[in-house]
């Protein structure tokens, strides 16, 4: 079987500005694909093109083997799309919302399915509560429940955990892993690094273009980043000093430390050596994390496209 999502050269412009530019992606069945990139990089727009909400200006491809241009009606039947902004009815209760969605999808044995979904996501006890009065975590659970009613084969989740507390995020991801284990394919956009690390595969987008893709490990390895951790007193002053050095590409504060990176490993090591001699300062090399990589990618894409 071909990939669940297989689109090439997607392009979309709003008011003459290319928001998605020549974007291609393949997502295999049963995998969790993380979709990363700064705000406004075109993630939502891409997801909308995948589920038939927007027509691409150029490019083609398939989603669940249906053409994203001509067979949007079929795609809509088999995709569960969770919008970035809560988009169920705030003046309906949890169960009324689910009943509505189930009716729209003509779900067979509706009552049974709704009851089962309420149970599965732990919504049963609150089923009569109005959606508008739910907190972020519960809204997100409800939205996920609404996506699952018609037993989709593909989930498109657009920043599902934005503004949700850590416990609720963990529960949510447990659900996602469970679903993937049962064969569900998931494309999920996020800004959280811990979530990105849980994905089987990542794609990073900036200014409408794909910048890098692969597993978390591959992304880190390919970045070729050399990261040094610097700690000491008066970090802001230290940071200004470090930025002056031509060998230093980036200085990013990480809590009580600074992450200093450069591409020329030998030169950076030499340039940082005098700092290690200063009293109260410690300088040592660390293995770059995803966050280092993405911050550096964001920084560079501004140079390239900004």
């Amino acid at each position: 079987m071909s990939a669940v999502i297989d689109v090439r050269h997607l392009t979309k412009a709003f008011d003459g500005r290319k928001v998605v530019d020549d974007f291609s992606i393949r997502v295999e069945g049963g995998r969790i694909h993380g979709f990363l990139g700064p705000n406004g990089s075109g993630k939502t727009t891409t997801i909308r093109m995948l589920c038939g909400l927007l027509t691409p200006d150029a490019g083609e491809g398939t989603c669940l083997d249906f053409d994203i241009r001509t067979q949007t009606a079929e795609i809509k039947k088999h995709v569960g799309y969770m919008t970035q902004k809560f988009s169920l009815y705030e003046d309906l209760s949890i169960s009324e919302n689910l009943d509505f969605i189930a009716r729209i999808y003509a779900v067979p044995r509706r009552k049974e399915v709704v009851a089962k979904t309420l149970e599965r996501l732990g919504l049963a006890t609150r089923s009569r509560q109005l959606a508008g009065s739910l907190s972020g975590g519960w809204k997100q659970r409800l939205a996920l429940a609404a996506c699952l009613l018609h037993e989709p084969k593909l989930l498109l989740l657009d920043e599902p955990t934005a503004g949700v507390d850590p416990k609720a995020r963990r529960d949510f991801w447990e659900n996602i892993h469970q679903l993937a284990a049962e064969g569900m394919t998931v494309l999920v956009s996020t800004h959280y690094m811990d979530e990105a690390e849980q994905c089987h595969e990542l794609v990073y987008m900036a200014y409408g273009r794909k910048v890098v893709e692969g597993t978390a490990g591959e992304v880190v390895d390919r970045s070729g980043l050399d990261i040094w951790e610097v700690t000491g007193p008066d970090l802001p002053k230290l940071s200004r000093e470090l930025r002056q050095l031509s060998e230093v590409e980036m200085v990013v504060p990480f809590g009580l430390t600074l992450h200093v990176s450069g591409r020329n490993h030998g030169a950076l090591e030499k340039a940082l050596a005098p700092f290690g001699q200063r009293s109260g300062l410690t300088v040592h090399r660390i293995k770059p994390g995803l966050e280092d990589v993405f911050i550096s990618l964001m920084d560079k894409s501004v140079d390239n496209f900004g």
């Binding site: 589920c51 038939g52 909400l53 809509k76 995709v79 919008t83 988009s87």
Partner: peptide
């Protein structure tokens, strides 16, 4: 924003 959800359904 509920329109987006409605449009994403059949």
């Amino acid at each position: 924003g509920t329109m987006e959800n409605l449009l994403a359904t059949p």
